[in-house]
Amino acid sequence: MTDSTLQKYPLLATPHIRLRGTVDYAMYQTFCDQLAAAPGDGMLVVSLTTLGGDPEVARAMGDDVRLIREFQRRDILFLGKAAVYSAGATFMATFPVEHRFLTRGTRLMVHERQIDSSVTLSGPLKMQVASLKAKLNEIEHSVNIEEEGFRDLVRGSNVSFEEVRKRAPNNWYIDADEARDLGLVLDVI
């Protein structure tokens, strides 16, 4: 990290919002509580360490960040620490590349959304068609949301959407320096 970056972003050393653990509704509540206690103006820093969790909760937290950025015209920086896996990468993707940072040694992990579901067919045949179409619609919609997140993750970087789609099925692990070199984050601190 250059001296000018250190001077421009001194708040990275003392994040206003510190999130750690599973991305779930408990984390969302912690996020909301810390956000409410944060200064009402100026730049904010959100740090995150997670092995993953609920991608919809990550998207909801990201929407809060986006709304603050757009309506309050405030800069909010993301600081990933140690591990930013799965839903953590989904949350990070809601920040513009120029507002993303990782600490040295941090790893990102990007993968496809997962499903653990079974379909039971029982009853009139026409009802089975409707049940199967509903499950297919759920899967197709989830794939669309996943692809929106992938596009957000790589927007402004040197990584193409096709590259992340190709690598995500195998759990793509990216160390901090590689993430910086790929343009997925602004810098490593």
Rank of each mutant, 00 (worst) to 15 (best):
M1F: 07
T2S: 15
D3H: 12
I17Y: 00
I17D: 01
R18L: 07
R18S: 12
R18Q: 14
L19G: 03
R20H: 10
V23A: 01
V23E: 03
D24T: 06
A26T: 13
A26P: 01
T30H: 09
F31H: 02
A36T: 09
A38P: 08
A38M: 03
P39V: 05
P39S: 09
L44A: 06
S47N: 00
T50M: 04
T50Y: 05
T50V: 04
L51P: 05
G52T: 02
G52W: 04
G53I: 04
R59K: 12
M61L: 09
M61N: 00
M61C: 05
R69E: 11
R73M: 09
D75H: 11
F78M: 02
F78N: 00
A82L: 08
A87W: 00
A93N: 03
H99N: 14
H99R: 15
F101R: 03
R104P: 06
R104G: 08
G105S: 08
T106W: 02
R107K: 11
L108S: 02
L108K: 06
M109A: 07
E112W: 06
R113Q: 09
V119L: 15
T120S: 13
T120G: 10
T120M: 11
L125E: 12
K126S: 13
K126I: 10
M127V: 09
M127T: 10
S131K: 15
A134Q: 12
N137Y: 08
E138A: 12
E148C: 10
G149E: 12
F150Y: 15
N158R: 14
K166D: 13
K166E: 14
R167E: 09
W172S: 05
W172E: 06
Y173N: 09
Y173S: 08
D175K: 07
A176C: 07
A176N: 03
A176R: 01
E178S: 14
A179R: 04
G183D: 05
L184K: 00
L184A: 02
L184R: 00
D187I: 00
